[in-house]
Computed example of a mutant assay.
Amino acid sequence: MTRQLFAAPRHPYTKVLFSAIPSLDPDDRGKAQRLEGEIPSPTNRPSGCQFHTRCPFATDLCKREEPTLESCEQGHSVACHRWRELAD
Rank of each mutant, 00 (worst) to 15 (best):
H11K: 05
Q33R: 14
E36L: 14
T53D: 04
A87E: 15
D25F: 02
T43M: 13
P56G: 06
P46I: 00
H52R: 04
H76T: 05
P67N: 04
E66Q: 15
H81V: 10
A8D: 13
T43R: 08
D60I: 13
D28N: 13
H11S: 11
C72M: 02
E73K: 09
A7N: 14
G75N: 04
T2E: 06
T68W: 06
E36I: 15
F18I: 06
E38P: 04
H76C: 04
V16R: 05
H11G: 01
D28V: 10
K15D: 01
E38M: 10
P56V: 08
A20V: 05
L35F: 07
D88I: 06
G30T: 13
S77M: 09
D88S: 07
R29Y: 10
Q50S: 15
V16W: 04
E70V: 12
P56C: 05
E85Q: 12
R29T: 11
P42Y: 01
L61W: 02
T68I: 13
R45T: 14
T43L: 12
C80R: 04
A58I: 01
R29P: 03
A79L: 06
R10G: 00
R84C: 03
M1K: 14
S77Q: 13
K15T: 01
D88H: 03
F51E: 03
C49M: 02
R10T: 03
E70T: 14
S19G: 05
A7S: 12
T2M: 11
A58T: 06
R34Q: 14
E70W: 12
L17G: 05
S41M: 05
R10D: 00
T2S: 11
H11C: 06
A58K: 00
D25H: 09
T59C: 10
P9G: 00
C72K: 04
T43W: 12
A20F: 04
L24E: 15
V16E: 02
Q50L: 15
P22E: 13
Q4I: 07
P12C: 00
R82F: 12
I21N: 10
P26Y: 00
C49L: 03
P67V: 07
K31S: 06
Q74C: 13
H76W: 01
L5A: 09
S19I: 00
T59S: 12
P46Y: 00
H52T: 05
T53S: 15
Q4E: 09
F57A: 07
K31Y: 07
H52D: 02
Q33G: 10
P56Q: 11
H81P: 05
R54W: 05
R3E: 11
C62L: 07
R29D: 08
A32L: 04
P42F: 02
A32P: 11
E36A: 13
R29Q: 13
R54A: 03
K31R: 13
A79K: 08
L61F: 03
